[in-house]
């Protein structure tokens, strides 16, 4: 069964991309019989270290992808030899190559994410993939890489693959981008700028406001000074944020503040409140 859908979660550093992507993947696995993969783009895996997998649905798998393992998989699939691909990647030349051709890292990752519908490269047994992707600027680089490569190298396998990857990440039926944001000014600025850049690239996106706090019914004047400052600040900040986000006309989703200390408990609670579109 080829992958039918991929979800990218991005946003400013520290806004809770990991928590939201995990909650969304969990919720989807819980509500459907599909095979779901939750993966993160990183050298080391926070999910493998911090999630209690035995408490999560059986149809949910966890992994982490980095440029190196994506390239290795791709090479061994194309060369039909693990030994040859190891020889290819485990040497100074190839390591330098990955450094010099920066788009290559991005291309390897997106190549893997879109290998299902493109029927090229190693196939994965997942119906939907939830990717805890890079933060804003780096994420934009990621999404720009295939087109940049296709334009640079119009001939040869690199050019052909880049073009087809570019088409699939711009297909809204297959690929969805979720911009996770908090309500502080910097998060909102980065999020809306990213949104505009993505739209310019031809990639639609939605916003997920993380840690939204319900303040409407608080009677601020009844609170002592410092407490009042704290909650009034949250209230004002959220108001400003919503006004900015609404200007974009994009879909807005709310993810409530979870009053829990542990990373895993936060994800578990959130997974129950997430609205997942089919």
């Amino acid at each position: 069964m080829a992958t039918q859908k991929i979800h990218f979660f991005t946003g400013k550093g520290g806004v809770g991309k990991s928590v939201i992507s995990a909650a969304y993947a969990w919720s989807k696995a819980h509500q459907s019989k599909k095979n779901i993969l939750l993966t993160e783009l990183s050298e080391e895996s926070t999910f493998e270290d911090n999630l209690e997998i035995q408490k999560m649905p059986k149809n949910l798998s966890i992994s982490h992808w980095n440029a190196y393992n994506c390239l290795e998989e791709y090479a061994s699939n194309l060369l039909r030899s693990k030994t040859l691909s190891k020889l290819f990647l485990n040497n100074a030349i190839s390591k330098a190559l990955i450094n010099v051709a920066p788009g290559l890292e991005e291309l390897a990752i997106l190549g893997k994410a879109t290998s299902g519908p493109r029927d090229h490269g190693p196939q994965m047994d997942y119906d939907e993939i939830f990717i805890d992707a890079f933060a804003t600027g780096h994420f934009l680089n990621l999404m720009q890489a295939p087109l940049a490569f296709a334009e640079m190298f119009s001939f040869g396998p690199m050019g052909t693959q880049s073009k087809s990857i570019d088409q699939w990440i711009k297909n809204p039926d297959f690929s969805q981008v979720h911009i996770v944001t908090n309500t502080d000014e910097l998060s909102i600025r980065e999020s809306t700028e990213l949104y505009k850049s993505l739209v310019d690239l031809g990639i639609p996106a939605e916003f997920i406001i993380n840690k939204f706090i319900s303040t409407e019914t608080i009677q601020f004047k009844k609170l002592p000074d410092q407490t009042q400052d704290f909650f009034q600040n949250i209230h004002d900040q959220q108001g400003d944020a919503l006004a900015e986000l609404k200007k974009t006309k994009a879909v807005l989703k709310y993810s409530p503040y979870v009053f829990e200390n542990h990373f895993f408990n936060v994800i578990e609670k959130l997974s129950k409140s997430v609205e997942v579109s089919s």
Partner: peptide
């Protein structure tokens, strides 16, 4: 490398 990426 040439096989994977092309000569260009």
């Amino acid at each position: 490398l040439q096989l994977l990426t092309g000569s260009e």
